[in-house]
């Protein structure tokens, strides 16, 4: 069955790059996107994805705060924090929530790390 992925990033270019790189590997996946943490919370209430890629620094709430709210209600979603904000505090917070942290930029390597976590839990 095709997996559903939600991309949350305030940069349209980043959302487009992530989508293109994922579809190159998994053309059957159904991908939706949101440009803020608040929008992602609302979208997930309507249609729960299997996976989510979440930026941190966006207008409105931090991506890590949005992730925490989402996982309280939907703990089965596998989520990757995908951000340019690579400081230890944010990486530690992601790990404490049981999430993977992958550093931007969007590249074949960073997307492969996210996919590996989604599918193998590594």
């Amino acid at each position: 069955m095709a997996k559903k992925l939600l991309i949350v990033d305030d940069s349209k270019v980043s959302r487009m790059l992530i989508r293109a790189q994922i579809l190159a590997v998994h053309p059957e996946w159904v991908i939706s996107d949101a440009s803020s943490g608040e929008e992602s919370i609302a979208l997930i209430e309507q249609d729960q994805p299997d996976y989510c890629m979440m930026d941190i620094n966006m207008p409105g709430i931090l991506g890590t705060d949005a992730a925490e709210k989402i996982l309280e209600k939907h703990p089965s979603i596998r989520m990757v924090i995908f951000s340019a904000n690579i400081q230890e505090t944010h990486q530690s917070r992601a790990k404490a929530m049981g999430l993977a942290f992958v550093a931007k930029p969007v590249s074949e390597k960073s997307i492969a790390l996210a996919l590996d976590y989604f599918q193998c839990g590594n």
């Binding site: 940069s11 349209k12 270019v13 980043s14 620094n57 951000s83 340019a84 904000n85 690579i86 400081q87 230890e88 550093a103 931007k104 930029p105």
Partner: peptide, 20 residues
Amino acid sequence: EIQLDALAEIFNVGAGRAAS
């Protein structure tokens, strides 16, 4: 708009590295 978005994302990645 899309060119500026791309440029903003480039500097966002740079700023993240610098902040670290």
